[in-house]
Design a protein around this nucleic acid. Structure first.
Length: 330
DNA sequence: AACATCCCCAACCGCAATTAC
DNA sequence: TGTAATTGCGGTTGGGGATGT
């Protein structure tokens, strides 16, 4: 049994708001406030609208000091940095941009900024589509498989990773920083590879940075860390160089981890490590120190890589190339 | 000029979190 | 403490204008 709807859809008006409706809502709220109850508000002022609709109209359009369009370069940069760091948490991003609404920023990102930063190719690759058709029970487009299939990497993670690399001006972060995941502290070993192959590695990544992200403030701070001082974004005017200092390495580790899993996959209310099963099957650190990428999970019947548990793995070269990741040591 | 396609964005939807009782 | 109501959020849709053929 589903939950009861918030209003009777047959008796409420839907679609675009008229100037009269806007005026009624604006006048009432400016004089009386919302009264702390959006559901009751439309009845009080004689609007045939759902309370949720009124709330949305007020927050996104009618309330004072709302800015529409005309995003500045600074705002673009901030949105980009925050998206890389915390993903599509639009309300948090909007809170950092006075006068902007989450809806506005979301629309701006999806329709313009993403294309501007990542280039025109926003459609999923044919390869990804093919794989999703083969390997998932649904025929949903690849753009949605990240959230619906435990076998698929999240689109957001891919975007954020690609964006991060693009802003770093590189496609092979390991060669750029002269680092390699296996060189990190207590490298992930094949023996640790169980159901979730990245678990051991991620644990080390998190430990090496001594803390997990536990608050919005820390998430926002992280937007300024992790190697995001890219040539384009460096706030001190000094372009990021190819330093392989420990801080850069640790930063990249964190970024890599976070890009793969997002904050949700790294947080725990106990302050410890909490894997996100949906995404943990997708990146493998190979025995030969290379990284493989399986967009739709592990192919247990293929070569060339065999794990201790007897399972074979096959990297998806075409997908790597599609995402400009052919330099991942494969 | 007519039609098709693309693009933008306001609004909707469903779900999770929070609050009230 | 459990349940229902409400709020807040992110993903998605669809109308309409812009652009291309």
């Amino acid at each position: 049994m589903g939950r009861a709807p918030c209003c009777d859809k047959a008796s409420v008006k839907r679609g675009p708001w008229s100037p009269e409706e806007d005026a009624k809502l604006k006048a009432y709220i400016e004089e009386h406030g919302t009264g702390g109850n959006w559901i009751a508000l439309p009845h009080k002022i004689g609007l045939k609208r759902c309370g949720k609709s009124c709330r949305l109209r007020w927050l996104n359009y009618l309330r004072p000091n709302i800015k529409h369009g005309g995003f500045s370069e600074e705002e673009d940069e901030l949105i980009c940095r925050l998206y890389i760091s915390i993903g599509s948490r639009w309300s948090i991003i909007a809170a950092q941009l006075p006068g902007r609404t989450d809806n506005d920023i979301k629309n701006y990102w999806n329709t313009r900024l993403k294309k501007k930063l990542l280039g025109k190719r926003t459609q999923p690759s044919r390869r990804l589509l093919q794989n999703s058709e083969i390997n998932t029970e649904s025929n949903k487009p690849a753009a949605s498989i990240g959230s619906t299939s435990s076998q698929a990497i999240s689109t957001s993670a891919l975007e954020r990773m690609q964006l991060h690399m693009q802003l770093q001006g590189l496609y092979n972060p390991f060669s750029y920083l002269d680092i390699n995941p296996l060189a990190w502290q207590n490298p992930y070993t094949l023996q640790n590879k169980t159901k979730y192959p990245m678990q051991g590695l991620e644990h080390e990544i998190l430990n090496s940075n001594s803390t997990t992200t536990t608050s919005i403030e820390e998430s926002l701070d992280s937007a300024n860390l992790f190697g995001l001082q890219s040539p384009m974004l460096a706030s001190d005017g000094v372009s990021a160089d190819n330093s392989s200092s420990s801080s850069s390495v640790a930063g990249f580790q964190s970024t890599f981890c976070e890009l793969l899993y997002g904050n949700n996959g790294c947080k725990s209310t106990q302050g410890g490590y909490l894997p996100e099963p949906d995404n943990l099957k997708e990146i493998i650190i190979n025995q030969d120190e290379s990284i493989s990428w399986w967009p739709n999970g592990l192919d247990e019947n293929a070569s060339p890589f065999t794990c201790d548990n007897g399972v074979n793995y096959q990297p998806d070269m075409m997908l790597l190339q599609d995402y400009g990741l052919s330099g991942y040591g494969l």
